[in-house]
Every structure is written in structure tokens, then in C-alpha cells.
Simulated assay, not measured.
Amino acid sequence: MDLLNNISERITHLKSGEHVTISAQELLISRADFQSVLVYLKHESKRGDFLIQDEALVENWFDRTSLTINKI
């Protein structure tokens, strides 16, 4: 839970128009754990506070090991 709280804090502290890139390597977590974080963030992005950038460029989201979040 600390991991999700830390990521949420990073997003909260962004100003409108700013972005942050998060990677499995940076977080020191496995690809499977990163995919769980991605699913959580995709769900949270539906609130409209932030967008996950370039999501459509990766056909298979299981291949993803990093993502960029844009604050709205």
C-alpha cells in the first residue's frame, strides 16, 4: 500500500500540465507487480485528474514496464 500511496502523492503534487514517468525499474518491483499498479492507475484515471500518456501505442499492456502520467 505504501507504493500506491507514494505514487498517488507524486501525482497529487504535479501541477496542471506537468507529467511524471514511472517505471518498474525505478520502483524496484516485478513486471507483474507493475501491471497491477497500471491497472490501479487506469482505474484512478477515470476520475479525470490525470491521463496515462500514449496508452494506445502499446497494443499489449503486459509488455509495458513504464508509463507517463499527465496531470490535467
Rank of each mutant, 00 (worst) to 15 (best):
His19Ser: 14
Leu28His: 12
Ile29Leu: 03
Ile22Val: 15
Asn6Trp: 01
Tyr40Trp: 14
Asp2Gly: 14
Gln25Ala: 15
Trp61Gln: 09
Gln35Phe: 04
Asp54Trp: 08
Thr21Glu: 10
Met1Glu: 11
Glu59Met: 01
Gln53Phe: 06
Tyr40Gln: 01
Leu67Asn: 01
Glu44Val: 14
Ser8Gln: 13
Ser45Leu: 02
Ile52Asp: 00
Gln53Thr: 11
Ile72Trp: 11
Phe62Trp: 00
Gly48Ala: 07
Phe62Asp: 03
Ser36Trp: 14
Asn5Arg: 00
Arg64Leu: 13
Leu14Ile: 04
Glu26Pro: 02
Tyr40Ile: 02
Ile69Leu: 07
Asn60Met: 05
Glu26Ser: 10
Ser36Gln: 12
Val20Tyr: 07
Asp63Tyr: 12
His19Lys: 07
Val20Ser: 05
Ser8Ile: 12
Gln53Gly: 02
Asp63Thr: 12
His43Pro: 00
Val58Glu: 11
Glu9Tyr: 13
Phe34Leu: 00
Ala56Phe: 11
Gln53Ala: 05
Asp54Glu: 06
Leu27Gln: 11
Asn5Val: 15
Ile29Arg: 02
Gly17Val: 09
Arg64Val: 13
Ser30Gly: 08
Arg64Tyr: 06
Thr68Val: 15
Arg47Val: 13
Ser8Asn: 14
Phe62Leu: 00
Leu4Ile: 13
Ile72Ala: 14
Leu27Asn: 04
Glu44Gln: 14
Asp2Tyr: 11
Glu18Lys: 07
Leu3Phe: 03
Val37Trp: 03
Ala24Asp: 12
Phe50Asn: 02
Val39Arg: 00
Ser23Glu: 05
Leu67Asp: 04
Phe34Gln: 00
Glu55Asn: 03
Ile72Thr: 15
Leu51Glu: 14
Asp49Gly: 00
Val20Cys: 12
Glu9Met: 13
Phe34Ile: 04
Gln53Asp: 10
Asp33Leu: 01
Asn60Gly: 01
Ile22Phe: 12
Asp2Cys: 06
Gln53Arg: 03
Ile11Thr: 10
Leu27Cys: 07
Gly17Ala: 11
Glu55His: 04
Val20Phe: 10
Met1Ile: 12
Glu59Asn: 10
Asp63His: 15
Lys71Arg: 15
Ala32Asn: 05
Ile52Asn: 02
Leu4Tyr: 15
Val37Gln: 07
Asp33Met: 07
Glu55Val: 06
His43Arg: 00
Gln25Glu: 12
Ile29His: 04
Leu14Gln: 01
Val39Met: 01
Ile29Phe: 09
Thr65Arg: 05
Leu4Phe: 15
Val37Met: 02
Leu3Lys: 09
Phe62Asn: 03
Lys15Ser: 11
Lys46His: 12
Gln53Ile: 11
Ala56Asp: 10
Thr21Leu: 06
Ala56Ser: 09
Asp63Ile: 03
Gly17Trp: 12
Leu51Asp: 15
Leu3Gly: 05
Leu28Gly: 06
Glu9Phe: 15
Asp54Arg: 04
Asp49Met: 01
Ser16Met: 12
Tyr40Val: 08
Gln53Leu: 06
Gln53Lys: 07
Ser45Arg: 02
Glu18Ser: 08
Lys42Tyr: 05
Ala24Tyr: 05
Arg31Asp: 08
Lys42Ile: 09
Leu51Asn: 14
Lys46Thr: 13
Arg47Met: 05
Lys42Gly: 03
Gln25Ser: 15
Asn6Ala: 13
His13Trp: 03
His13Lys: 02
Glu26Val: 05
Asp54Tyr: 13
Leu67Cys: 06
Leu67Thr: 07
Val20Glu: 02
Ser36Asp: 13
Glu18Ile: 08
Thr65Gln: 10
Gly17His: 14
